[in-house]
Structures are given as C-alpha cells and as structure tokens.
C-alpha cells in the first residue's frame, strides 16, 4: 500500500533520513521504532507531505506522491497524528473531529454526525461537548486519533500516540487501535512503548541515525545485535549476551 524508496532528507548539512526504504502491506500494522533523534518523525513528514524528500520517492497505492501537498495526500487517504498534539484549542472536541470529517462530508450535519460516531468509537463520547483545551493528555491523544480517523483514511500514520500515557491508559487504547485495523485501515506507527509494539505490530522497521538498520517481526528485531547497539551503544549486545550466560 505504502512504499518508501531510498528516501533521503537533508536539513542543510544534517542528514535526518538517509536512504530509508520501507513497505507497508495493506491491512497490516507496521511499527517504526528507533532511538531519539533517529529521524522517525522526519520520515513521517516525508510520507504525510509536510516535507519533501531531498532524494527518493514515496509511493502510495503504486502512485508517486512525493511532490503532493499534505492536503492532497489526506484526500488520497493518508492521515497522520502529531507527536506533539495539535488540537484546535478554541473549538469543542466534536468540532475538532468534524474538521476531519468535512474532508469526506460537505454538509455540516453529515460531518457532525460522522464526527460523533468517530468520537464514540475512540472513547471520547462523554467529552464531545467540552472544549478541546480542557482535555487531559490521554484525551488529547485520543482526539488526535479521532480527527485523523474522521478523514476516513486508508493509511493511518500514528506518531507516538501512546507517549505520555500511563499503563492503564495504554491498556485502554491498544484495543482501539487494533479495532481500527480490523475495520480495514492500514496502520504505520512510531512507538516507544515496546509493550504496544510487541502486541500490535506484525512488522517492525528500526531507524537509527536516519538509516533503516533492521526489519522483521518485533521479536526478531529486538534480539538483533544491531538494534541493541543502536539503543545502548557499541558493544552492548556482546555485554548483554555475556551477562545472560553468567546469570
């Protein structure tokens, strides 16, 4: 469904994403993990269109969308959430979601009805009439999710929707994400919460210093010495193995 081919993004002298390639199969949940500053969010901005790749291509359903503006990609069926939540603070929760719903519904009443359905689905039902700025962090994350879902996407890009949530909130939202996939939406997620990555993702890509250093099922990737070293430093994989033998 989505294919990134050798995408590179430079900001001046800094290479944020370096020859990264990945594939997301239709109907899957794919994870994108990596240490802080690896370039995950930059790769997301290339896919969602907020930045254009310096080199390489982004293909969606077989078409090259590398030069499309973000709103065009949204129309094609790519929706993203923001790592740093971006609510329309002056609007109610329902109105926030309705902005997303308006992408597919021209009439105000249709958009509001659709927004209400989406809000119920992600568990924002009791909050719909509240101001978006009054929501808790967990609520705002749900709002990000709801707005993106309201655009009725084919591909949903989730940028750390679980970050900043407590364990019980994470437990609450994981089934919501799984249900979204089960209704036919393909998901690509950046996530640091490994519990979620392990339980949700079929395929994981690991990004470090702008490069994809590993890919595969989550369990395999976590044992990959390259991945361990990317997170814990050179020689860490060796040391961990030794400690395991001693224990």
């Amino acid at each position: 469904m989505l294919e990134v081919q050798n995408a590179t993004k430079r900001f001046g002298g800094l290479v944020a994403v370096n020859q990264a390639s990945l594939k997301v199969e239709a109907g899957s949940i794919t994870g994108l993990i990596g240490p802080n500053g690896a370039g995950k969010t930059t790769l997301f901005t290339l896919i969602s269109g907020f930045e254009k790749p310096s080199e390489g291509r982004v293909l969606f359903e077989g078409e090259d969308i590398s030069r499309d503006e973000p709103h065009v990609r949204a129309r094609r069926g790519i929706a993203r959430t923001f790592q740093i939540v971006q609510p329309f603070a002056g609007l109610s929760v329902l109105e926030n979601i309705a902005v997303g719903a308006h992408l597919r519904h021209a009439k105000r009443s249709d958009a509001l009805a659709s927004a209400e359905r989406v809000g119920q689905r992600v568990g924002l039902g009791p909050e719909l009439d509240k101001s978006a700025s009054s929501l808790t962090v967990a609520g705002r994350k749900r709002l990000e999710l709801a707005r993106a879902l309201a655009t009725e996407p084919k591909l949903l890009l989730l940028d750390e929707v679980l970050a900043g949530l407590n364990p019980s909130e994470i437990r609450d939202i994981i089934p919501v994400i799984r249900a979204i996939r089960d209704e036919g939406v393909t998901i690509l997620m950046i996530e640091h919460v490994m519990q979620a990555v392990m339980s949700l993702c079929e395929q994981v890509y690991v990004l470090a210093q702008g490069r994809i250093i590993a890919e595969g099922p989550p369990a395999d990737v976590c044992d990959d010495p390259k991945v361990i070293e990317a997170y814990l430093g050179a020689g860490a994989a060796e040391r961990l193995k030794r400690e395991k033998v001693h224990a």
Partner: peptide, 26 residues
Amino acid sequence: ERSRFGAQLVAVRENEAAAKALGVDT
C-alpha cells in the same frame, strides 16, 4: 459559520498544520 468552508477557516485560525493534515487546502 455553519458551512464546511467556515469549519475549515476556523481550523486554519486555530492550527494551520493540523488543518493541512486533515485535508484542508489552507
């Protein structure tokens, strides 16, 4: 105020990046 155009206009006022991500041609 009651139209799609208005909803999108207000969205642009509140947060332009978020509006773009939701398919608004800002």
